[in-house]
Amino acid sequence: MSNPIIDPKNLVYEKSKVLSDNTMHYCPGCSHGTAHRIIAEVIEEMDRQKETVGVAPVGCAVFIYNYLNVDFAEAAHGRAPALATAIKRLNPEKLVFTYQGDGDLAAIGTAETIHACNRGENIAIIFINNGIYGMTGGQMAPTTLEGMVSSTCPNGRDVAIHGHPLKITEMLALLEGTCYVTRQSVHTAASVRKTKRAVRKAFENSLQGKGTSIVEIVSTCNSGWKMTPHQANLWMEENMFPYYPLGDLKDK
């Protein structure tokens, strides 16, 4: 059964070549894959494949260097902004970005994150906030919502015991060194288009030396949340977005 429309001359969309053909190890429906795909498209459109250095996190995205065909360095847990600082200062002409989960960026790496942003390092930070530690079994993260169940708060996060969910992106927007701080998502075609524009702006800022850019992507970890991918998207809209509202927090 061949379909005559399926012909290279009619092609209107395919994944970027900057994204490798390796099968990603992520769970089906995981937001990490969509975020990787967007980054690959932006690097291709900016024609920067040979002039980009990514810094990989510890977390589910630890193998991002197997999926994006650009140079990569692997940081110790949470230290990606410190490593990216060195890479960018030594190679000012490169596009340098970190890719970090909420456990990496907002727990163990809080100090590195805040100080890199405060120094205004000319890097882009892509921040995947799925509200838990995905890789290690879905433990509570600083970003876990009040009442949200995780493997280490099976009765839901209790702010009296665990504190409030950390809005680290709002904190980073207050720092003089950040030039662009935005919060996006990747669960619909429209949100993917917006996130792509945000990543592009963040990457251009890195090249123009405007300071630190942060693109938070409110994400799902459907395995950790124990939902189907679609249920997780709906849950995210209903529960994550009110606390982590989408849109630009700073653009200077």
Binding site: I6, L11, G33
Partner: peptide, 20 residues
């Protein structure tokens, strides 16, 4: 209709979209 919504949300980049 070849809108590419499916391709844009696919986490694994598995979908090519064609349009005439």
């Amino acid at each position: 209709i070849g809108c590419a919504s499916c391709g844009l949300v696919c986490p694994d980049g598995c979908i090519q979209v064609f349009k005439v």
